[in-house]
């Protein structure tokens, strides 16, 4: 049951996007988010959406799977959009017709409100889909490697970059183990007559305690054992340590980088010289 939870929801296929350097993908996502928020006209947002669609097709991930990522935030997005439509107000006119379209008591639907909502919905959707594309196409391990590499400059201010990356990768490694363990403990408690999924909220929270305590104890014991195993294998922190897996830029990365640069440049130009000013 708990085992089926796939962390980071990596989607394993071979594709151009999968093979990109994880650092580049992280930077790409950051750049993309900047572009989304710089885009001030529908054409610019449309370009962002087109680029994302292109990336999804390149990544060979079924569209349905990508759209499922949106489901989690759908309610939030629609709620915010509705609030904006009914309460935003404003006199700006975007197309022929009155600025104020409909009014009842405190509710005012205006052209400006509708436009704002459209932008908001599009931006949030692009944001969520873009981020999930990163986790779909990058394994947790290379994601950590990428983060470690990107944070390397922080070593200059003595920030323990290597340790942080090791913590992240060990955490990822132990997720399936601790999930198994949780399930085992829950079954053991159920066998002793504990009812974990009945009763009111207060009762349920209370029922979790006998699961959490053994889980915590076992996690500490495992940490101890892992520490010994690491010591026995000569671990002594990041000093004088080499890395087997090196991240390398390839021509693919260069190509993707060019695409990102073009996108951001284009959006910035459109930000300064709008094509269809609103």
């Amino acid at each position: 049951m708990l085992k089926d939870v796939s962390f980071g929801q990596y989607y394993p296929v071979r594709s151009f996007v999968h093979s990109l350097d994880p650092r580049l993908k992280i930077l790409f996502l950051i750049g993309y988010i900047v572009a989304i928020f710089l885009a001030q006209e529908l054409l610019a947002l449309g370009i962002c959406a087109a680029v994302l669609l292109f990336a999804i097709l390149l990544a060979r991930i079924p569209l349905g799977k990508v759209l499922r990522a949106v489901k989690g935030v759908l309610f939030l997005v629609l709620f915010t959009a509705a609030v904006n439509i009914f309460f935003h107000g404003g006199d700006k006119v975007y197309w022929d017709g009155p600025a104020l379209l409909w009014e009842w008591k405190i509710f005012r639907v205006t052209q400006a409100g509708i436009m704002l909502s459209v932008f908001l919905v599009l931006r949030l959707f692009l944001l969520v889909i873009g981020s999930s594309l990163l986790t779909y196409t990058t394994t947790p391990v290379s994601l950590t490697d990428g983060i470690e590499s990107l944070l390397t400059p922080l070593k200059w201010v003595r920030f323990p970059v290597h340790e942080l990356a090791l913590i992240m990768s060990i955490a990822l490694r132990f997720i399936p183990i601790l999930m198994d363990e949780t399930e085992r403990i829950m079954n053991a408690q159920k066998a002793r007559g504990a009812s974990l999924d009945s009763g009111g909220p207060a009762k349920r929270v209370k029922a979790i305690v006998p699961v959490l305590i053994p889980l915590l104890l076992s996690a500490f014991r495992r940490a101890d054992e892992l520490g010994d195993a690491m010591d026995a294998r000569c671990y002594s922190g990041g000093k004088n340590r080499t890395k087997y897996k090196k991240l390398r830029f390839s021509w693919r990365d260069l190509l993707a980088f060019a695409l990102l640069a073009a996108l951001i440049a284009g959006i910035v130009v459109m930000y300064i010289f709008p094509v269809f000013p609103l």
């Binding site: 947790p140 391990v141 090791l166 990768s169 060990i170 990822l172 490694r173 183990i177 014991r221 495992r222 054992e225 892992l226 195993a229 690491m230 294998r233 000569c234 671990y235 002594s236 004088n240 340590r241 080499t242 890395k243 087997y244 897996k245």
Partner: peptide, 20 residues
Amino acid sequence: SQAVASIVEDDVAFGAENVG
């Protein structure tokens, strides 16, 4: 509770990486 990494080769590499 002995493996540090999630993938076999990454874990086998751990000790060798430690000694540089």
